[in-house]
Design a protein around this nucleic acid. Structure first.
Ligand SMILES: [Mn+2]
Ligand SMILES: [Mn+2]
Ligand SMILES: [Mn+2]
Ligand SMILES: [Mn+2]
Lengths: 218, 218
DNA sequence: AATAATTTTTAGACATGGCTAAAAATTATA
DNA sequence: TATAATTTTTAGCCATGTCTAAAAATTATT
């Protein structure tokens, strides 16, 4: 069994590994992600290495073992299932779930998470469009591209967000942008990289930053 | 905010205070309840005293302050609501919920527990018949007596259990004894204090120990 | 290739929460 | 009431997880 702290480290390393193509995840990157100090990370890494969760060579960063990856996806599975529960059953909005799921993901009970999965009807995605790993740790990769890479005239369905901060999600709510909505690129403005998009019956201008945080399935 | 450990101590002191008529709860009693050592209890008590949760005079035991009581009932509210959730929604049986609720009760989110209450339809009792405090900390006391104190010929509805161990609850399941069932005392055996009871259409003999762990509402 | 800048690790400290063994206080017994 | 037994507290130690400051290693720059 892992402590809450250990689990947070494992998850952080997994996420960093997924979206950085580098092999070894650096001490500094982990420290930044967990808002802690590099020295604390080194200490924890040594412990996780002892426990066969990561492979670690001094100054070379860490890599998750297969066991570590399995552990990570299991925590992520729990996190995302709880997020679905909060939104679908308890009237949370998608910008309120993260903090609570951050706690709930550490509850130890295989039966609990199994039954929760059943109760929710085996959801495939969390409220932010992220895939929910199955109990074996497999998670289906979804074909998706950032809105920012679409060309003029192209269109697709909004299927996810990269940034999951309250501010960003509330902004999307305000603009009427939500998962499942169809978006078409009317115009790309070369000057500031902003986009003019068609969203249902209205046209909307969104900044480049927004376009780089919205995933579209063509 | 209180740590998980602090919350467990607060809850233990509350429960001990409720069913022991003494004012000061002894260090030893707390240690026994939490399966820890008296010296650890003394340390924690000092901290809780600092935090105005308990009143503590050396060698005199502790008493919860009003603030401490409020804190305790809030934790108990969470524990019992989660137990209802596990049984009603996730197919847990009443002997499986305790361990998980022991973890879930420490999740920090007022909205979560509020919405859970709504989702469950404002339940008044947990799966063991114990009352669920409202968000103000008030909990209705239920008229109930131990089956053991009933006289021959008296009857009532089974409304609670004192012991909530798996072994006891599974034993009740096996005997067909459950909350809401009507029980009538056919005979009290003076020799060993056992009871012959009427449960629905069948007669059943139960030991004195069982009779001292079953609550009946006349 | 040598030096400078940056990253990472180590050393030493602190807070929390737990333990054992010994001392102190309280309660029971003779 | 003096002594014995029990309970409670204190003292000192340990594990986890965090931090700062200094040392060591790596990477970048001249
Ligand atoms: Mn977490
Ligand atoms: Mn999510
Ligand atoms: Mn608990
Ligand atoms: Mn209960």
């Amino acid at each position: 069994m892992f402590s809450q702290s250990e689990e947070n480290y494992i998850k952080a390393i997994y996420h960093l590994a997924v979206d950085s193509s580098v092999k070894g995840i650096s001490t500094n990157a982990i420290a930044k992600k967990l808002a802690t100090k590099a020295s604390s990370v080194t200490d924890m890494i040594k412990k996780l290495s002892e426990k066969k969760v990561v492979v670690y060579k001094k100054y070379q960063g860490v890599t998750l073992t297969d066991f570590g990856k399995k552990t990570a996806t299991n925590i992520i599975r729990k996190h995302r299932l709880w997020e679905v529960f909060l939104v679908e059953k308890l009237n949370f909005s998608w910008d309120e779930v993260h903090e609570v799921a951050e706690q709930l993901e550490h509850i130890k009970s295989p039966k609990l998470i199994n039954e929760l999965d059943i109760f929710l009807g085996f959801p495939k995605r969390d409220p932010h469009g992220d895939p929910i790993p199955d109990s074996e740790g497999n998670l289906q990769i979804i074909e998706k591209s950032l809105l920012a890479v679409l060309n003029k005239g192209e269109e697709g369905i909004c299927v996810g967000v990269d940034d999951t901060s309250s501010e960003f999600l509330q902004f999307l709510d305000k603009q009427g942008i939500a998962l499942g909505k169809r978006i078409k690129v009317i115009e790309k403005e070369p000057f500031d990289g902003s986009f003019l998009i068609q969203l249902e019956d209205k046209e909307l201008s969104i900044s480049n930053k927004i376009a780089n945080n919205l995933y579209i399935q063509k």
